[in-house]
Design a protein around this nucleic acid. Structure first.
Length: 424
RNA sequence: GGAGAGGUGGCUGAGCGGCUGAAAGCGACGGUUUGCUAAACCGUUGUGGAGACAAAAUCUCUACCCCGGGUUCGAAUCCCGGCCUCUCCGCCA
């Protein structure tokens, strides 16, 4: 959420930013109007409260002297009634404001390309050489079928469309990959590994910005009002909710594996083939809590940490700086890492690295005391490091051979109990 | 799932209707002392909101003793609901 003070002082800037993210800018005028009303109400209410406190003191004094206080008590009772009625109205305005505030997106950083959608994203760098084949590379689902490591029919029998069932070395490859990623991030990039809960409460989901806007995209357990995590970002960022950290604690780097659950409502018909877009997938997440003045440098290094995985795996990728129109609700700046999938003949998004500045910190109330003893909001960042299914796709399709077998990259062989190739 | 106990400031812990934004201790910070360290002594030490101010500093008011309601002139304190923690019993991978 944004700072209400900032919105008051820069309504036009905020409206402009909102329009760039395709959100409704009219809510700003509404917000400011309600905000003005609310403030005058607070003022009136506090004056009454002050009066009441004084009168109560008088009652106390009179009673102490054994004198009659019934007249003042009568008066004060009336003040109390007035306070109650103002408070009721004020509460209504409070909830209106909270509601509006939670739906205002973050403001894009100055160097974010202005644009409508993903077509306006800017490719900022590319890594790796395009792999050439002396045969036509197959898409991963055909490789999965040939190697008997993917069982889409039974996955949908068990759970429905959009679920993955891995078998044998396919399952092992999955496990190898996230172990490998966690090891790289902990031992080479300085992240602390976490294993968080995969069910979280409503407050946590609101803190990181999934709620209220995206509730229909989330899986929810009705009996307990808990949500299946759509990414480890949610439990990990919420770890420090309502905490005050010391500047000495920062920066904090966390990495966590989690399955990710997404209903993908509204994306029916897109990427239905194979395992490109599914309701449950594994991911290793990177989360940083940092001092504001360092957050953009931290974003670059986070991006580098995620990309390192693809470099180690020898997979071609490119990095896109997202345009204002393609960025998520909470992000101020975001890079996507896209990996090349030869069988599909296209790039697939495997990571989204974002700086949220203080947007999430404000919602989650994560602050730190700086060198001067002042309380400030931290900046939060996160990125996938990486999402598994699409990494698996790229890996299978890139390292496939003519007979359908797949070579395991050197760095993974250790995690695959020394297996060098997945063959029929 | 059943029975009980409890949630107070950075921490420990008192208070159980008004003089309590909160005793005491610890910690932290500043100062005096000191060759250095330690000790001792003195002082400071919460957060949100509204208003005053062009702004910062500052000041005034207001709220906050897990959260939300209620009783009362007045609530950390009494009542109701919720959440969480602990102990015992049961069940269970």
């Amino acid at each position: 959420m944004l700072d209400i003070n900032f919105i008051r002082n820069n309504p036009d800037k905020v409206k402009q930013a909102i329009a760039l993210k395709h959100e409704n800018a009219a809510s700003i005028d509404q917000l400011l109007e309600v905000d003005t009303q609310r403030r005058s109400m607070i003022h009136a209410c506090e004056q009454l409260k002050s009066k009441r406190n004084e009168k109560s003191k008088e009652v106390r004094e009179l009673k102490k002297k054994g004198q009659d206080a019934s007249k003042i008590i009568e008066e004060t009772k009336k003040i109390g009634d007035d306070i109650k009625s103002i408070e009721e109205k004020q509460k209504e305005l409070d909830s209106q404001i909270t509601n509006l505030m939670l739906r205002i997106p973050n403001i894009p950083a100055a160097d974010v390309p202005i644009g409508k959608d993903e077509k306006d994203n800017v490719i900022v760098r590319a890594w790796g050489q395009r792999k050439t084949f002396d045969f036509t590379p197959l898409p991963h689902w055909e490789l999965g079928s040939i190697l008997n490591i993917l069982d889409p029919e039974r996955a949908s029998k068990i759970s429905g469309a959009g679920f993955i069932l891995l078998k044998g070395l396919g399952a092992k490859l999955e496990r190898a990959l996230f172990s490998f990623m966690l090891d790289v991030h902990t031992s080479e990039h300085g992240y602390t590994e976490l294993f968080p809960p995969f069910l979280v409460n409503r407050t946590s989901m609101t803190g990181t910005g999934q709620l209220p806007k995206l509730e229909e995209d989330m899986y929810r357990t009705a009996a307990d009002d808990l949500f299946l995590v759509p990414t480890a970002e949610v439990p990990v960022t919420n770890m420090h909710r309502d905490e005050i950290l010391s500047y000495k604690d920062l920066p904090i780097y966390y990495t966590a594996y989690s399955p990710c659950f997404r209903r993908e409502a509204g994306s029916y018909g897109k990427d239905t083939r194979g395992i490109i877009r599914v309701h449950q997938f594994n991911k290793v997440e990177l989360v940083k809590l940092v001092k504001p003045e360092t957050s953009y440098d931290e974003l670059e290094s986070l991006l580098g940490n995620a990309a390192k995985i693809l470099q180690l795996l020898g997979l071609e990728y490119r990095v896109a700086k997202l345009s204002t129109g393609d960025m998520s609700f909470a992000a101020a700046k975001c890079y996507d890492i896209e990996v090349w999938a030869p069988g599909l003949n296209k790039f697939l998004e495997v990571s989204s690295c974002s700086n949220f500045e203080d947007f999430q910190a404000r919602r989650t109330n994560i602050r730190f005391r700086d060198e001067d003893g002042k309380l400030r909001f931290v900046h939060t960042l996160n990125g996938s490091g990486l999402a598994l299914p699409r990494t698996v796709i790229a890996l299978l399709e890139t390292y496939q051979q003519k007979d359908g077998s797949v070579i395991i990259p050197d760095v993974l062989q250790h995690y695959m109990s020394g297996i060098k190739v997945i063959a029929k």
